[in-house]
């Protein structure tokens, strides 16, 4: 029943779930971030097992390489007291009830999804990276171009949001001597 690949996938899934739980329940933000990186690495392994090598590479390069670095900057640029004291999870009756509710929600979703009729038909062969490149640069060309302009706008917007408005810096920018 269980072949070697299934066993590997179960191990990868357990790693992803443990990482996600560690991200939610660890008390320090920096530890949450490390657990989240662990989860993303496991998700990249799951992509690899679905024969999506290109997506696994994108996941590791973009998520683990740059997004997590940006989040780490956000953690470093806010005060330590906030990270440790004010960010403690709210432990009260409401959060306990919501945990139980979400656990039930996961079970209901899992049951509904695993018994759905779309899994009845046999799986076809997985797409290839060559087909992926063909789809991006032929079928989805316009979407890729729009995505590029959206990313440029996001970068400009982010640098506008974090600009420094102090007068001395504005004067320095304009080259005015004191």
């Amino acid at each position: 029943m269980l072949d070697f690949e299934s066993v590997i996938f179960v191990i990868v899934s357990c790693a992803a779930i443990v990482g996600a739980l560690g991200c939610v329940f660890s008390s320090r933000v920096a530890h949450s971030l490390l657990w989240l990186m662990f989860t993303f690495f496991a998700v990249a392994a799951a992509f690899l097992m679905a024969s999506a090598e290109m997506l696994a590479a994108i996941q590791i390069l973009v998520y683990l390489g740059s997004v997590m670095l940006v989040v780490q900057f956000g953690v470093m640029l806010t005060r330590r007291r906030i990270q440790d004291v004010e960010s403690l999870p709210t432990l009260n009756a409401i959060s306990a009830v919501s945990s139980v509710g979400i656990f039930a929600f996961i079970l209901v979703l899992l049951r509904g999804m695993m018994e759905h009729s779309i899994w009845d038909s046999d799986s076809s062969t997985a797409p290839t990276t060559l087909g992926f490149a063909d789809a991006i640069f032929n079928d989805w060309t316009m979407a890729t171009v729009i995505l590029g302009s959206l990313l440029a706008m996001a970068m400009i917007g982010a640098s506008y949001l974090v600009r420094d408005e102090r007068l001395i810096n504005l004067l320095w920018d304009m080259g005015v001597e004191e």
């Binding site: 679905a50 929600f105 996961i106 999804m113 695993m114």
Partner: peptide
């Protein structure tokens, strides 16, 4: 190749844990 429904099941579980985290924390970065 692995059965695709297993991958979708992993997605469901991770989604639930992420949803729990958004309810659970008050630090905006988390």
């Amino acid at each position: 190749m692995i059965d695709p429904s297993w991958i979708a099941a992993l997605g469901v579980i991770l989604f639930g844990i992420g949803l729990l985290g958004t309810f659970y924390h008050k630090n905006a970065i988390v």
